[in-house]
Design a protein around this nucleic acid. Structure first.
Length: 185
DNA sequence: CCCTGATTCGC
DNA sequence: GCGAATCAGG
């Protein structure tokens, strides 16, 4: 596919709207993100890097997340609240990892699973971390488990890594599976 | 690792 | 002009 006038126009629009090169490439079809970037340069469109990265970066809603999360109340011994807050504010990834160390146990080694499961079940609804991704940010390998009321402003998706193939992360894949099983009976 | 844009350079 | 490969960064 070549760069017809209308395709170029669409490119201009999407780029100015802050879409990433890969997103635009998908939208247009028949071109790679490199092609898009290359074209953008040839067209001398603005290096909208600032806003792009800013958009790519997770909005800092962390406060709400931390305070609202039952982690502190449910498992006080695991992580000191202050530590959690500090890390949460600094970066999003590390937080996931840190909390993940706790949350991931739910889906870890089969032999330990039972052991952990007991403790987890007792402490109710401590779900793995989510990356709070918006619809636009989902990819082939992000968990698409919806969280919250779709009509609510804070609605988002899990966004955790989904094992190659399934649309959900291992944790939510289990939930989905259970749900289906339950419904069948 | 996955993703982002930036650059280079053969076609 | 085009875009894959590669680079640099988060």
């Amino acid at each position: 596919m070549g760069w017809t006038d209308d395709r170029v126009e669409l490119l201009r629009q999407l780029w100015s709207e802050g879409h990433s090169a890969s997103q635009i490439a998908e939208r247009l079809g028949g071109v790679s993100r490199n092609a898009v970037i290359g074209k953008v340069h040839r067209l001398k469109l603005e290096s909208r890097v600032k806003s792009a990265d800013a958009a790519a970066a997770q909005p800092i809603i962390v406060q709400e997340t931390v305070s609202a999360t039952p982690v502190t109340a449910v498992a006080p011994r695991v992580i000191a609240p202050k530590v959690v807050a500090a890390q949460a504010i600094s970066q999003s990834r590390p937080v996931a990892r840190t909390l993940g160390a706790t949350a991931l146990k739910v889906e870890l080694h089969p032999d330990e699973e039972e052991h952990v499961a007991t403790a987890t079940q007792t402490s109710a609804e401590v779900v793995p971390m989510t990356r709070k991704l918006s619809l636009v940010q989902l990819t082939e390998r992000t968990c698409k488990w919806p969280i919250g009321d779709p009509l609510s402003p804070d609605f988002h998706f899990c966004g955790d890594h989904s094992g190659d193939g399934s649309p959900y992360c291992s944790y939510h894949a289990k939930l989905a599976f259970q749900a289906v099983e339950r419904r069948r009976r």
